[in-house]
């Protein structure tokens, strides 16, 4: 029997080098705790990252870890997953790494449904390169490279994922141990590509950019915590609900007490509602927004191969599998 590991067993000897107060610390803590709770084996777990503040993550987890190059972690992780599908592969990326320079790889990892658990630390800014606006920055973001305010329209990770054909999309807040932990476990249990957007606070270059809905005092009013099969309720006393408005195909807030029968129940397999949920701003939807189980890429890839990556025939035979002749 293998020993039971604790969160501490998943910490490395390396000194963690994020800015004090960075949201990454909280994510790291919840991650190692979740690994322990899941009973993950360090030798069969790998963290693959690209470049950016978030991508330092593998150095701090006592598993296999590969800190690669900017934007390419999903491609490297795909190769690893094909080489050894038994490894639990976690990809750690950020809004710049995953949605700007590496947007193409993220898109294809999602549409192929490669069995990767992809954590997208979204802080709406480039931290490591000192504060430039990122592809998720809101219009008008002032930064060293946009002193007059950025003019680009921001990308929504949720819409991107659903558009790419992702089969799993969830959201959580960096400091929300319970919510993030739940979502990480759901992602871990999912067979294909699971994208988790984590609202991460960069206290140096984009402090409190999500405070509007992450602040504890606002949480009840501004967050919609989704649970599969449960009504979409929020507010201090769950007095508000979400209803589908068939007139303009939108989601709207209603008084859940007066018309409880009109409150939508969350169905994680409903992609149409998932599209509306990722767009919803007030409240912000958290938890597993969309989940549609199906075969992973590696499973289909191996299924198409009689003996997996094992040799079932010899090169000596293959060399002779065409017309041959003998010269004497």
């Amino acid at each position: 029997m293998s020993t039971v590991l604790s969160a501490k067993d998943f910490a490395t000897s390396q000194e963690v080098r994020w800015c004090p107060g960075c949201g990454d610390y909280a994510i790291l803590k919840t991650m190692t705790k979740t690994l322990a709770e899941l009973g993950a084996r360090p030798e069969s777990t790998a963290f693959i990252s690209g470049i950016g503040c978030a991508s330092r993550f593998p150095y701090y987890v006592e598993t296999y870890g590969f800190h690669t190059i900017h934007g390419r972690a999903p491609a490297i992780a795909t190769g690893l997953k094909l080489a050894n599908p038994d490894i639990d592969v976690w990809v750690v990326t950020g809004d710049g790494d995953g949605l700007s320079i590496g947007g193409n790889h993220l898109l294809h990892a999602l549409r192929r449904n490669v069995g990767l658990k992809i954590l997208l630390f979204n802080n709406e800014i480039y931290g490591l390169t000192k504060g430039q606006y990122s592809p998720t920055s809101r219009r008008g973001t002032r930064s060293p490279s946009s002193p007059g305010g950025s003019v680009d329209a921001p990308l929504s990770p949720g819409e991107f994922a659903l558009g790419a054909g992702a089969k799993f999309f969830a959201r959580a807040i960096d400091t929300d141990k319970a919510g993030l932990g739940d979502v990480l476990k759901e992602a871990h249990a999912f067979e294909g590509a699971a994208l988790v957007e984590i609202f991460q606070n960069c206290i140096v270059y984009n402090e409190d950019v999500f405070a509007d809905f992450t602040d504890r005092k606002n949480a009840a009013e501004k967050q919609l915590r989704l649970k599969h099969g449960k009504p979409m309720l929020f507010g201090a006393d769950n007095e508000k609900g979400i209803r589908f408005n068939p007139d303009d195909f939108s989601l709207e807030v209603i008084d859940a007490r007066s018309v409880p029968e009109q409150v939508l129940r969350h169905d994680e397999r409903n992609k149409v509602v998932a599209h509306l949920l990722v767009e919803l701003a007030k409240p912000v939807a958290l938890g597993v927004i969309y989940k549609c189980p199906g075969d992973s890429f590696e499973k289909s890839w191996y299924a198409a191969r009689k003996s997996g990556l094992k040799r079932s025939s010899s090169v000596a035979d293959a060399l002779r599998s065409t017309n041959t002749w003998t010269v004497t």
Partner: peptide, 12 residues
């Protein structure tokens, strides 16, 4: 992605 996947395979 092609070379990166190959690197991932070698890593594996």
């Amino acid at each position: 992605a092609a070379i990166c996947a190959a690197i991932g395979a070698s890593y594996g």
